[in-house]
Structure formats: structure tokens, C-alpha cells
């Protein structure tokens, strides 16, 4: 048994496909990116190595900083708007029971399975100031209905709303599953104690959902950083650079401005930021949990002493 399980050749054959994919599709491109990031390569013809010139320029590139700020905005938007809504709706849905529960869960998730290309174009029409759905709704309620949703100040909100709408079902579903996994006994005990719904929600549901929330928050930050498809079709970063995102910006620089080297430099910084964000988030959540565990165990020791 032992010999069988440590056969080097077998192990190699099992992990090789995965490793090859990793090297070929992830590692090699990153190395290439790092290399081109140090050059002034336009994408064709000759080029020279310019050292850290691209990175120096990047530090002063307002469009790049705007794109990071936009990612932060989206992340906050997800955490403060989408997730609370999703938790509440999940909790409400959990109370409903019966066939309705299934029906609503299905309906909420539908936008999620539709391709981004369709979603983006659809919302472009919905936002259209002249004949779009949103302004027509405002008109139906007696308003003037001539809002320009993609003005410089509001465009990023418009993007956020589309993303919230598109991803709502996913977030809701995860919270819903989290709630279903909570032991019913706890609720029964709370009911016996005479706690009302609000108290049970804040005292039992929320605290027990903490691991789920943590996972979701991490996902929200990452997906805000990685945002590209929707923005690319909805606004392509405009007006100006008001809805610019890192992935979209590097694409524009490389394939529109003929600055392949610079685009790669953006890519490298982008990767570093994503890695850092994941590591930091994991550390933050991990630390807090561990501290708590330590504190609890500490108390127990005190008592024992």
C-alpha cells in the first residue's frame, strides 16, 4: 500500500497535466508580462529595454489610479448594498417555505445564467435617456424621466447597479444555503425564550453566518478588482475615464494606443494587487478567528485555574 501510494512515476503522471497547464497558461504569460513590462515595445517592430520607466509612469497615471478607486467603489458597493440585501431576502425567503420558496429562488438566479454580453447590451438600452426603460418608469410615476444615467458622476453607479442586479441571485443563494445550514434547534430555543424575529436574526442568524459572509466578502473584493467584461461593453471606461478598470485599461493601452509594453506593466501591477488583496483579506479574517479562539481557550484555562 505504502509503496503504491508513493510511486513517483504515478504521482508525476497525475499532477503533470495540472502543472503543465499552470506553467503554460499562467506562469509563462506572467513571466513574459514581467519582461515586456520593462520595455517600450509597441507590439511590433523593434524595442528597447527601459527598466522601470513604465512603472514610474504608472505611478503618475491618473487613469490607472481612477481604475483602482473604481474597483474599491465596487467592492464597497457590493459589501454595503448587495450583500445586506441578499442576506435579508435570503432570511425572508427562508421563512416562506413551500413551493413559493423554490419559485423565488429560481427566479432570482435567472439573470446569473445569462451571458454578460446580453446583460451589458440590455442595460445599455435600459439606461438610454431617450427611450430606455428606467426613464420610462420614472415617467410612468409622473416624473420628468430625462435622467442621463451615464453622466460622469453617475456612470459608476450605473455600472454598480447592473453588477448588483446580475450577481444578486448568486449572493442570495449562498446566504440562503448558509441559513438553511443553521441548526433549527437554535431557533426553537430562541422561540421558547420569547425572542422576536428581529432579535433572532441579529443574535442567531447573522453571527452563525459569519464564515459565509467572510467568503462572500472576499469574493466581492476580488470580483470588483477583476471587473472587465461588463464595463467593456457598457461604457468602455467612459465618459472620460470615469468607469475605467485595470483590466480594461491595460487592454486599451496595448491594443488601442500601441503600448504593449506599458499594458504589460499594468498587468504585472494588477496581478500583484490581486495577490496582495487576497492574502490580506485571508489574514484579516484568519487572525480575528484565531484571536477569538485563543481568547476563548484562554478564558477556559483561567476558569480551570
Amino acid at each position: 500500500m505504502k509503496k503504491l501510494y508513493s510511486n513517483k512515476l504515478v504521482i508525476l503522471s497525475l499532477v503533470l497535466p495540472g502543472l503543465l497547464l499552470f506553467v503554460f497558461a499562467i506562469l509563462a504569460p506572467i513571466c513574459l508580462s514581467v519582461y515586456y513590462g520593462f520595455t517600450d515595445y509597441s507590439g511590433m517592430g523593434s524595442y528597447s529595454v527601459t527598466g522601470f520607466e513604465n512603472y514610474r509612469e504608472l505611478m503618475h497615471d491618473t487613469a490607472f489610479w481612477t481604475s483602482l478607486r473604481n474597483s474599491l467603489f465596487l467592492a464597497i458597493g457590493f459589501i454595503c448594498i448587495q450583500h445586506p440585501l441578499a442576506i435579508v431576502v435570503a432570511a425572508v425567503l427562508d421563512k416562506l417555505g413551500g413551493r413559493g420558496e423554490n419559485f423565488f429562488r429560481c427566479v432570482y438566479f435567472i439573470p446569473n445564467v445569462i451571458s454578460v454580453a446580453v446583460i451589458a447590451y440590455l442595460w445599455k438600452f435600459i439606461y438610454n435617456p431617450d427611450f430606455g426603460l428606467l426613464n420610462n418608469i420614472i415617467k410612468a410615476f409622473g416624473g420628468k424621466g430625462d435622467v442621463n444615467w451615464f453622466s460622469t458622476d453617475t456612470a459608476i453607479w450605473a455600472v454598480l447597479i447592473v453588477l448588483i442586479w446580475h450577481g444578486f441571485g448568486w449572493g442570495m443563494l449562498i446566504y440562503y444555503t448558509g441559513i438553511k445550514n443553521i441548526d433549527q434547534v437554535l431557533y426553537e430555543a430562541a422561540a421558547i425564550d420569547g425572542a422576536d424575529q428581529k432579535t433572532t436574526f441579529f443574535r442567531i442568524t447573522l453571527p452563525l453566518m459569519k464564515p459565509v459572509i467572510q467568503v462572500n466578502v472576499t469574493m466581492a473584493v476580488i470580483s470588483a478588482l477583476k471587473q472587465m467584461e461588463t464595463v467593456y461593453l457598457l461604457t468602455n471606461g467612459g465618459p472620460g475615464n470615469s468607469t475605467q478598470f485595470a483590466a480594461n485599461y491595460l487592454y486599451q493601452q496595448a491594443f488601442k494606443a500601441f503600448r504593449y509594453g506599458y499594458g504589460n506593466a499594468i498587468g504585472v501591477v494588477f496581478i500583484v494587487i490581486c495577490l496582495a488583496a487576497t492574502v490580506i483579506l485571508n489574514k484579516v479574517f484568519e487572525d480575528r478567528d484565531e484571536r477569538k479562539v485563543r481568547r476563548l481557550s484562554g478564558r477556559r484555562e483561567e476558569k480551570a485555574a
Binding site: T152, P239, G240, N241, S242, Q252, A257, F258
Partner: peptide, 21 residues
Amino acid sequence: GPSVFKTSIESEIQSVSNGST
């Protein structure tokens, strides 16, 4: 001008016309 100029003016012209720069 070169592509960099083209990319720049085509995005900045939106901002100047709508008054954000």
C-alpha cells in the same frame, strides 16, 4: 498624431465637452 495621442484625445474630448475637465 500617434496612436497614444488618438487614444488620449478621443477619451478626453468626452470629459471636456461635458464639463468634467
